[in-house]
Design a binder for these strands. Structure first.
Length: 670
DNA sequence: GAGTTTGAAACT
DNA sequence: CAGTTTCAAACTC
């Protein structure tokens, strides 16, 4: 945990030579593009903050500021000449991002990533091949601070031939910076997609430091890099994005639509408006959720440093969903625009299997399903003003965003003070109110190799449920919703929790449950297939698929988890990934890790049983998308590549999990 | 999309 | 701490 922060901080601190940037063609290009002063916008983080946020508590502060910076950066990036080139290439999106991989905590991870990246140079990997590094975000973009490292990273990227990815050791920077990152990223994407219509296929936010909470970096360095699918995957594991991103997306769209070609400043504004700030400590968990999905889908790495305080939530590190959405959007746009990005060209590995055919509908659907509620919370509060735990957004520690249908919402940056005060009040009543609901027994699972230990039961709801009528078989049940079995703490009646009954009989139940779920699941799958044969084509390409998404795990997850059956991300992940990551200290992380295993074990068998359809079907995509994927780490894949990847993954996961910061401290200062 | 069900959160 | 009310998500139709 500490390591990552240190690194990031150091990097951030490192002054970046602006002069370089200024001199850079990109910089010039940008200047030419928009009279508006990008730089100002960029540098003006404070101004933004002042605008939108009166006095952002430390907790919230970072997000806002970050968003601004990011936007500016994005803006630049997009504007950069390189991009135009990218367009020329026609590859779908290849916005690039660069990246550095981070590292953090675990160098192992970084190393792995690097390796993967190396092994899969863009050229080598089909998926990545298309990617072109269009732009590098120069450190200059980040007036604030600067990290030499970031700048270095950028340079490296530039150097990389073809733009592929770049992940260098330096990578440390990236990752996980604050949730804002995701936002920023989105902004970029939006810009790109809407105004430039570019494709960012395959772009994926790369890992974020689990430590998201880390704030502090004063500078934002955004570096985006396209990574090979595999590498991406690896990166993902731990990283998570904030929901903020997701939210922003919608917001972005709006603005994009309206302001399609706006200047940087405009962008910033948009971002701000759309900005979703994660309440410190709170929302991380949720945010984290998305990551998993992204891993498989988006291959973008972005790092950035934020000026001012930033939380680096674990979630912040990545927002899977968002990224996905973004990618989808871009893809869709590209599709809509025949000349430009071609889905075909988009690195297959990259993302989307489902995305492609994409229609906006699909996107929407996807976001709704996968991200929908889970990764991106969208509340519908009418009376609570989103200041009570009834509100999922508030409970998750994130601000409500446009997609929310809440009434009289106070859970917005504007009301930070209120939000914080309310939060404190609630915490005073229940210190764990914002803590992850699902807790895993790290020790037990990790160490124990046995099946029993691996069972989902290893993770438990912190308070236990109190179900009376749902038999713990519906999402009314928090245990079930969290993908964990009921425990002694539960006061449920007639518990039939598929993840483990309170009485302890897990597997058996799961099996039976699976049978049931499977039927429904199969049906749904069939439907999906019918609706998305096009998407299949993408999947057909084995090379692309595997690297991107390790099917086995996902599949497993799917089968076992009811959520998946619905094509929704299992809430668990939210808790696990996000929540656990964010708040729960090591234990959570490990737990999440553990969960994977249980799932894996359970599911592995099923993989074989699984109908080919499922395997090849769009569902696979879903799987990939699903956060669960992260957790699952199937040791084996058909291809050697996948195998290697997986191995890495597993490692990565562990690392990631560990890296995940403990439950964010309530103290806003942090 | 409206209405119902459910259980957590909040309140007493 | 237990009982009740409030609330919003989950679910059903």
């Amino acid at each position: 945990m500490d390591k990552p922060q240190k690194k990031s901080t150091s990097q951030i601190e490192t002054p970046t030579p602006k002069s370089k940037f200024e001199d850079s063609p990109v910089f010039n290009y940008i200047n030419n593009l928009s009279p508006i002063e990008q730089v100002k916008s960029i540098s003006t983080v404070q101004s933004f903050s002042s605008l939108s946020f009166t006095s952002p508590p430390p907790v919230f502060t970072s997000p806002h500021v970050n968003s601004h910076h990011r936007e500016s950066r994005f803006f630049r990036c997009h504007n950069s000449v390189d991009r135009s080139k990218a367009l020329e290439y026609g590859s779908a999106s290849k916005e690039v991002v660069v990246a550095s991989v981070d590292v953090d905590l675990n160098k192992d991870v970084s190393l792995e990533e690097d390796e993967t990246s190396d092994s899969q140079t863009p050229d080598d990997s089909p998926s990545t091949g298309d990617f072109v590094t269009e732009e590098l975000l120069a450190p200059s973009d980040t007036p604030r601070g600067d990290n030499g490292a970031s700048s270095e990273d950028v340079q490296e990227e530039n150097e990389t031939p073809g733009g592929g990815r770049l992940i260098a050791d330096a990578a440390e920077l990236l990752v996980f910076r604050s949730p804002n990152d995701s936002e920023a990223f989105q902004c970029l994407v939006d810009k790109i997609s809407s105004s430039e219509r570019r494709f960012c296929a395959g772009v994926k936010p790369i890992k974020q430091p689990n430590d998201i909470p880390v704030i502090g970096s004063s500078n934002e360095n955004v570096t985006l890099a396209v990574l090979p699918n595999e590498s991406v995957l690896n990166l993902h594991r731990g990283s998570m994005r904030r929901r903020c991103l997701d939210f922003e997306v919608p917001g972005k769209r709006k603005k994009d639509i309206a302001d399609d070609q706006q200047t940087v400043c405009d962008n910033k504004a948009a971002c701000e408006s759309s900005v979703r700030c994660v309440v410190p400590g709170i929302g991380l968990h949720l945010n984290a959720i998305a990551m998993s999905s992204r891993d498989t889908e988006i291959n973008i790495i972005h790092e950035y440093t934020v000026t001012g305080e930033i939380q680096k939530s674990s979630s912040g590190s990545t927002t899977p969903i968002h990224s996905q959405d973004i990618v989808r959007e871009t893809l869709d746009q590209a599709e809509s625009e025949p000349g430009e990005g071609q889905a075909a060209e988009v690195p297959k590995g990259l993302v989307f299997e489902e995305l492609n055919p994409g229609s906006l509908k699909k996107k929407t659907r996807m976001s709704e399903q996968a991200g929908e509620g889970e990764s991106c919370k969208r509340c519908n509060c009418k009376k609570s003003k989103c200041l009570k735990l009834y509100c999922e957004c508030f409970a998750a520690g994130v601000y409500c965003i446009e997609p929310c249908s809440c009434v009289d919402c106070f859970n917005k940056p504007i009301h930070e003070d209120t939000v914080l005060a309310t939060r404190k009040q609630i915490e005073s009543r229940n210190p764990l109110a914002f803590a992850p609901k699902v807790i895993r027994n790290a020790d037990s699972i990790i160490e124990a190799g046995d099946d029993a230990s691996k069972t989902p039961a290893s993770a438990r709801h912190k308070r236990g449920c109190n179900c009376k009528k749902s038999s713990c078989l519906k999402k009314y049940c928090e245990c079930y919703q969290g993908g964990v079995g009921c425990s002694i703490n539960c006061r449920c009646e007639g518990c039939k929790n598929a993840f483990g009954r309170k009485d302890g009989s897990l597997l058996v139940i799961m099996e039976s449950k699976e049978e049931e779920d499977r039927e429904t699941y199969d049906k749904r799958i069939a439907k999906i297939q019918n609706n998305s044969e096009v998407s299949k084509e993408v999947e057909q390409n084995p090379s692309s698929d595997q690297p991107l998404t390790p099917l086995p795990p996902y599949r497993h997850m799917v089968v076992h988890q009811p959520f998946l059956s619905k094509n929704r991300l299992p809430p668990t992940q939210f808790f696990l990934g996000a929540g656990s990551s964010s708040r729960k200290p090591d234990s959570d992380l490990t737990q999440s890790w553990n969960e994977k295993k249980p799932l894996e074990t359970v599911t592995e068998d099923k993989t074989e049983d699984m109908p080919d359809v499922l395997l090849n079907s769009p569902i696979a995509t879903i799987k990939a998308i699903s956060p669960n994927s992260k957790r699952v780490s199937p040791p084996h894949l058909g291809s050697s590549e996948s195998g290697s990847i997986l191995g890495k993954r597993s490692n990565g996961r562990k690392l990631i999990l560990r890296s995940i910061p403990a439950f964010p401290s309530l103290n806003p200062n942090q």
